[in-house]
Simulated scan of single mutants.
Amino acid sequence: MAGDSKAQQVGDSAALAVLARAGLIAYGVVHLLIGWLALQIAWGAASKSADSSGALGTVADQPFGKILLCLVAVGLVALALWQASETIWGYRNCEGAERVRKQVTSGAKAVFYSALGGSAASVALGLGSWGSQSQQQTTSGVLAWPGGWVIVVVIGLITIGVGVAGVVKGVKKSFSEEIDTSSMSPVARKGVARLGQVGYIAKGVALGVVGGLLSYATLTFEQQKAPGLDGALHAILAQTFGRFLLTAVALGFLAFGLFALLGSRYRRM
């Protein structure tokens, strides 16, 4: 019991909250860079992949970039720890299925932030990152398992589900319960809501395309064509009016990045 109490105190500590807010800044910067790289793809000037690996590589190329990436990694790991604490001890004001749903969501976010933080640390140490090639290698490895194609398709469907959830969250503006806007002016409050709405919808669309392409490539036995986020953005570009569609998605990622930066100040923790 004493150990659980101490662990809960760590999860609720002010220091962890400060680090988690720093993690939100890092998370926002990554999305701003993805949006910028997506704009470059849309208008034919990209030199890096428009995903987290490309974004982290862009940071690494800057003066003191590896030091910045170490700070990004620390912030993202802190953000993961905060989400993990929410998974175990959070949402005590909720009951039943609603609390379980929120705890599962926080657990998934903890895993995602941990992976992104690990990728940032890997790039900072010169070990590479979780890019499109490594994703394809992992997918091929899973497909070699008995029934592996089922696992990959399920992962694709889950990714689609996450994308749809993001779109719904943006349309319904349900993200507003996570942000304390009481100190903002009505104009600022409306602007934050618009950033969150556009950002969640655009990111949800991109994730939906990632999941759809992954499932399709698996079911049609074209695993070598199973793309990550960068491949999904190129798939959007290949459509009719793709340049303008991709520009809209890129602006959405920029909006989401700005929303995350604002969340570092106004997020309820």
Rank of each mutant, 00 (worst) to 15 (best):
S264R: 02
I155Q: 03
V210K: 11
A235V: 01
F221Q: 09
I201F: 03
G156M: 06
G204L: 06
C70F: 15
Q223D: 12
N93M: 09
E98A: 12
Q40E: 13
L254R: 01
G252C: 05
V210D: 07
S13E: 08
T247C: 15
A42F: 02
K109A: 13
L76P: 09
Q103C: 10
S129N: 08
V154H: 10
F241K: 08
V18G: 03
T181R: 09
T139W: 08
W89V: 08
F253L: 14
A124M: 05
G54A: 09
L116Q: 01
S47T: 15
K203M: 13
L33A: 10
R99Q: 14
V167Y: 12
S183H: 12
V187T: 13
T218Q: 03
Q133H: 14
L207S: 05
A45F: 06
A78K: 09
L261K: 02
Y113F: 15
G126C: 13
P146W: 11
F241M: 12
G170E: 05
L56E: 05
A80E: 06
L261H: 06
V142P: 03
S185K: 12
Q135Y: 03
M269E: 12
M1A: 08
V249Y: 01
G148W: 14
Q83G: 01
L16A: 06
I88Y: 08
W149T: 07
V59G: 01
A226L: 05
F253R: 01
T181Y: 03
V164Q: 07
I25G: 02
V104Q: 02
S114M: 15
R267K: 12
L71I: 10
D180L: 13
C94R: 15
S122T: 08
T218R: 06
E178I: 11
Q135A: 04
Q224F: 07
A45G: 10
A232M: 06
L125D: 12
T105G: 13
G117H: 04
L251M: 14
Q40F: 03
L32F: 09
V153A: 07
P227F: 00
L79N: 08
V249D: 02
F112G: 05
T159W: 04
G242D: 01
A217R: 05
V168D: 05
I155A: 15
A250H: 08
E178S: 14
K109Y: 14
E86N: 13
V168L: 14
L16H: 06
A20V: 04
F259A: 02
D230G: 00
R267L: 15
A73Q: 07
S183C: 09
G211S: 05
A50W: 02
I34S: 00
F244I: 07
T247Y: 08
G54L: 11
T138R: 06
L214H: 00
